[in-house]
Simulated scan of single mutants.
Amino acid sequence: MIEAVKFWNEPNNKSHWDPEVDPDWVKFAQMVKLSSAAVRAEAPGLTKVLGGISPIDANFIQNLQQKGVLDTVDAVAVHGFPLDWNNWQIHIWPERIAEIEAVTKLPVWVTEVGVSTFGAEEVQEFGLKRTAELLTGRVPRIHWYSLCDLPKAWPATTRHREAEGSSYYRHFYMGLLREDGTPKLAARHFANYTPAFGICQWFHFEDHRLDDAVKWLKKLGVKKLRTGLSWADSYRPNADAWFDRQMAALEDFDVTVTFCFTPEHRGIQPHHTSAPQVPEEFAEFCGRMVRRYVGGSATPVEQEAKLVALA
């Protein structure tokens, strides 16, 4: 069910990790190393991935490398949105990948890439085709962000929200499907790029979209899915029941699961972006989730690829 785990999401983005609490990512590095050890103790063969960075920054990777973090993971990941938020053009994608490859021997996964329909659906349609041309065969994993638009009644996970202006509102239009579940123009092309293209789809606690999303993922031929299990949500009533339902619904996919979000009462600051007071608690959460949904039977992704090639 789970082929890989990721430690955090966009740790070099203020909307996901607070640099005022942890200005040189010392606490983050300690947390990831502890968490990697906890996962390895439960499932030695499970692939471990550093949380996808955004912006794509080779200096950030080198910082974590110097702190020993890259010795504890099997891949690093990047996120890019050149038609919405990044200050570089879409054709630069291969160069951005090469910048990270130049500072690490680990595989580079693209675990979020997407285009909003904030301005026009035709922009997403173009962006999907061009991204496929640039990235297919270039990296081991590509996860398109995302399947579903974010409901307008929900907040997007950014630090300043509406104060960001149009940058904030783009978060609500990243899906291949509109909020009402109807497909956009790009959705009719997506099956042309699967299974090479996976999907990144975050599910909120007790998300009403789960079952319909699974139907669409299968319809589009998706095999690789990235999602998340929230440490913060684990403190909600009936959290394990929701986690069980989510993971059971996704059992037909090869899942990369992201562990992230600090519970407010366990952060140095009361916010989901804060470094935890006790990093071992996050590691314990990662280990418990792997024990619950993987056990000790995971096959390393690289070993799996070799077996497929031999077949």
Rank of each mutant, 00 (worst) to 15 (best):
R96Y: 06
V5Y: 08
I92Q: 13
V49P: 07
A58D: 07
S274N: 11
F81W: 02
L307T: 14
E20W: 11
V103L: 06
R138H: 08
V257E: 02
E95C: 03
R40K: 15
R236S: 13
P183T: 00
C286D: 07
P195W: 04
T47N: 02
A187K: 02
F243V: 04
Q89F: 15
G80C: 05
T47W: 03
E164S: 09
P82M: 12
N9P: 00
T131V: 02
N13G: 04
S54M: 13
T157E: 13
L83D: 02
E125P: 07
P183R: 07
D240G: 05
L128T: 04
Q65G: 13
K105P: 12
G114H: 01
D74P: 10
F197T: 00
P23F: 08
Y193F: 13
P279W: 07
Q30C: 10
R188F: 09
I97V: 15
E20Y: 12
P270V: 10
T227E: 01
W109M: 05
Q303A: 14
L150H: 01
K218F: 03
T111G: 05
L83V: 06
K14V: 13
V108C: 06
Q303F: 06
E302Y: 05
G68W: 01
L185T: 10
Y173F: 13
T182R: 08
Y235N: 13
Y169G: 03
N87H: 13
W109Y: 14
A187S: 06
N86D: 15
G295D: 03
E179F: 04
W88T: 04
H204W: 12
C286N: 01
V26G: 12
V255G: 06
Q201D: 07
V290F: 04
D254S: 12
G119D: 08
V294W: 05
P183I: 01
R226T: 14
G228C: 03
P195I: 00
F261C: 10
I2Y: 09
R266C: 13
L307E: 15
A4G: 10
Q62M: 11
L229A: 05
D212I: 06
L177G: 03
V257L: 09
A298P: 00
A132N: 11
I2E: 07
L176W: 11
W216L: 03
G45R: 07
A232V: 09
R141F: 03
H208F: 13
P19Y: 08
G137S: 03
R170M: 13
G296E: 09
E101V: 02
K129G: 11
M247K: 07
E280K: 14
L217D: 03
